[in-house]
Nucleic acid binder design. Structure first.
Length: 321
DNA sequence: ACCTGTCAAGTCTGG
DNA sequence: CCAGACTTGACAGGT
């Protein structure tokens, strides 16, 4: 089975090539709309060019899997700010899609905590629709074929009712958006099995988050659930995606550490190796690409894993002998 | 040049 | 019922 490694949002190596230079609403308000829009537009252009730089850097290092930060376009989902974030940027944005298509780079997004599709507050649900619409527009703008990861969300007043709300609201989304949503188990509320059952019913691919599984489970046996989790990706056109991270410390279990603990990672690989199937693994840690490269060095030193290139590898029977 | 509080937004817990 | 935690990178404003 082939494993591709990816990382999240920004490169520590290219520290000056940020593509998430933002503009706060507070500063937007301080000037008149015309001037603010001009500043905003400049930032967006710089961000899109910066994003292309990072994708090139990733490709140069054999990294073919990356999470886009939605901060590439600031203020896009705020009702108080209205501007066309698509057509002025189409020309430079097309390069993103052309590049990732040419080199087979997988790009995903992850709407943040404010996207709560099953909130009891109708305004929050409305805002969540807008956030999902924006993420869909990002894919369109860059002409890339990607997915957006979200969580089930709220558990008010109890999980049963909250899951019911999730399903109802999901059904009201545009088909185009439904096809792009993938669902992840979280670290406090919804466990692997609970998310899996929703995914199976609604035919949504499931993202397994390994650290969240360790923080939040009902003693579910992960290995026995893996075939079902991976099966949710059948017919999606993508290989299953997994999030992997390491706790910062025993006390701060849910916080991400700077580096990946390679022993944890090897244990995890042994678990997923049981299901012989290609997987893309996204590393979530503060060390970003630096942590990815360090993990690769450790895998090369401590295992017999066969690397296809600088970063990606084949997992088989001989990997750990 | 560097440091600290703030940022548009939600949910949950605990006092 | 409300304040604070959660969590995150970058801005904004002060020294």
């Amino acid at each position: 089975m082939k494993i591709h490694l990816g990382y999240v949002a920004l490169s520590l190596t290219l520290e000056d090539t940020s593509y998430s230079r933002t503009m706060t609403y507070t500063s937007y308000k301080k000037k008149d709309a015309e001037e603010s829009n001009k500043i905003l537009s400049e930032k967006i252009k710089n961000n899109i060019n910066g994003l292309l730089e990072i994708l090139k850097y990733n490709y140069d290092n054999d990294i073919r899997f990356f999470r886009l930060s939605h901060k590439v376009i600031p203020l896009a989902t705020l009702d108080e700010v209205s501007f066309d974030y698509m057509s002025p940027f189409i020309n430079i944005s097309k390069k993103i899609g052309a590049f990732s298509k040419k080199y087979n780079i997988r790009l995903d997004t992850h709407p943040d905590q404010f996207c709560v599709l099953n909130s009891i507050n109708e305004d929050v649900v409305k805002a969540s629709f807008k956030i999902l619409d924006f993420n869909n527009n990002l894919f369109k703008l860059f002409s890339i074929d990607g997915k957006m990861v979200i969580h089930v969300g709220s558990s008010v007043p109890n999980k049963d009712e909250a899951i019911k709300r999730f399903k109802e609201n999901f059904k009201n989304l545009d088909d185009e958006i439904k096809e792009k949503i993938i669902l992840e188990n979280d670290d406090k509320t919804y466990t692997v099995l609970e998310v899996l059952e929703i995914c199976e019913e609604l035919k949504i691919p499931m993202v397994l988050d390994y650290l969240h599984y360790k923080c939040n489970n009902n003693s579910e046996d992960l290995v026995s659930l893996l075939p079902r989790i991976f099966a949710t990706w059948d017919n999606s056109g993508f290989v299953p995606k997994i999030h992997f991270s390491t706790s910062k410390s025993r006390k701060e279990k849910r916080s991400h550490s700077f580096y990946i603990n390679y022993k944890d990672f090897i244990n995890f690989l042994k678990k997923i190796a049981v299901v012989d199937r290609d997987v893309d693994v996204m590393l979530e840690c503060k060390g970003k690409d630096e942590a990815l490269f360090r993990l690769v060095r450790q895998l090369k030193f401590y295992t017999n894993i066969k690397f296809i290139d600088n970063v990606n590898f084949i997992l088989d029977k001989e990997s750990f002998t």
